[in-house]
Each structure stands twice: as structure tokens, then as C-alpha cells.
Amino acid sequence: MEQVEQMDFVEAKEEKRKCVIDVKNLYKVYPLGKNYVRALNGVSFQIYEGEFCAIVGTSGSGKSTLLNMLAGLEKPTKGSIMVAGERIEKYNENRLVKFRREKIGFIFQSFNLISTMNAIENVAMPLVFRGVPKFIRNKRAEKMIELVGLKKYKTHKPNQMSGGQQQRVGMARALVLNPTIVFADEPTGNLDSATSEEMMTLMRKVLSEKNKTLVMVTHDNDLAALADRQIHIKDGKIVKIEEGNER
């Protein structure tokens, strides 16, 4: 009974919230020799502004495939994707790059910092692609680095930092362009559990402060439990959508 009421409440709340991701009937089929792999097999869901949403599933279930398509890194075989007000499924590569540059932040599992650049330069990278002058972009990058608590490591190169620190730089880099949505594919996959916890807490804090939408892929149920909502995937299909703890 209580649960039903709560559901109604949530529903009503969602009505008012802005929908930033709207996926309808999404398919992705990979050719594999003479056979086909249905990585995504008809997926539909919405994600709302400011939400922290986890995509959960076992390895090979199609989580990354889904995330990549949301971030405009890959094209769907079939279906429509609306992200941050743009219908991206028909976009060509150039247009997708522009879309990412303007609306998307991305956090990688393996950090993917440029090894020759220090923390500030790494964080400032996306601003370089936008043509922001050096003086301004360094200032903004410094601010972001302070936000993720790496004030002392501004001029450190990636190999002079721990994994957790590197991922925080990665987070700062994803946020520096002030994106509408941040995507993260197993952001703690390369970190130990204590650091992972720390990382998740920080991520939640920073993102909710800025009212950003976060979509995170993970196979770890404990981490997924921290999200507002969990989308469970199995064999390319959504098996259940679970509301988690309220903010």
C-alpha cells in the first residue's frame, strides 16, 4: 500500500521534471561472422534532469552498448534516441562530435588521461577543442580541479597520481565544459572498493550541486544501489527499473 502511494508520488513528481533522455525501441545488432549479436534488443526508457541513473547488468548484457549510443559514440541499428533535446540517431559523425562538445561529459573506466599533460592541461583539453583562449581555460580547469579536491596536484602528470586521483581528474575533465549530461562507463572499475566509495560520494555531491544528470554503467549492485534509479539489463533487454533512495 505504502509503496503504491510512493509510486504515485514519484510519478507525479516526474511529470513536472524535464526529460533529458528519451529512448524508444532501441536495437543494436552486431554482425559476428555469419551470425548476428543482438547487443540491444528493443529498449525504451526516460531519464529526467538532475537524476542519477545506474545501468546495471552482468558482463556482456549490453550496458556499454547502450551508454555509447546515448553519448553519440555509436549509431543504433533501429529506434530513436533523444538526448538533451536533440534527436541524435540520424546525426553524422561531425554533428555528433559537435553534440558531444556542447552537451556531453564522459568519464572512462581506464581514466584515459593524456600522459604527457599535467592535471590542469588534461582538464582543459575539452576547452581547447572549443577554442577557448589559454588564460581562460586554465582558470576554469583550476577551479574544476579544486572542486574535486586535487588542489595540490594541479601540475602533476598522470603517472604521479593514484588511480583515484586520476579518476577525479577525469571527472573534472568531464565537467569542465558544463555539460547537460555526464556519462560514466564503470568509472570505478579500476579502483579498489574504498576508493570507489569515496569516488561515488564525491561524484554525487558535485553533480547534485550543479544539478547535472548522471548516467552510470556498472556491474556492481552495491554501487548501483547508490543511484536514484537503476535500470537492470539482461541480454539486451530491460528486465526491471528500480527506484532507489531519494535525494
Binding site: 553519448a71 559514440l73 559523425e93 561531425n94 562530435v97 559537435k98 558531444r100 562538445r101 556542447e102 556531453i104 564522459f106 572512462f108 584515459n112 593524456i114 583539453m125 575539452p126 577543442f129 572549443r130 575533465r173 565544459l177
Partner: peptide
């Protein structure tokens, strides 16, 4: 290859 991929994910124009 990887670095170029990262740049593209972060929104570096193909022409650039």
C-alpha cells in the same frame, strides 16, 4: 589510436 579516440569523445572536431 586511443588518444585520438579520447579526443573525439571529448568533442574534438574531426577536421581539427
Amino acid at each position: 589510436t586511443k588518444e585520438i579516440g579520447v579526443m573525439k569523445v571529448l568533442g574534438c572536431d574531426m577536421r581539427d
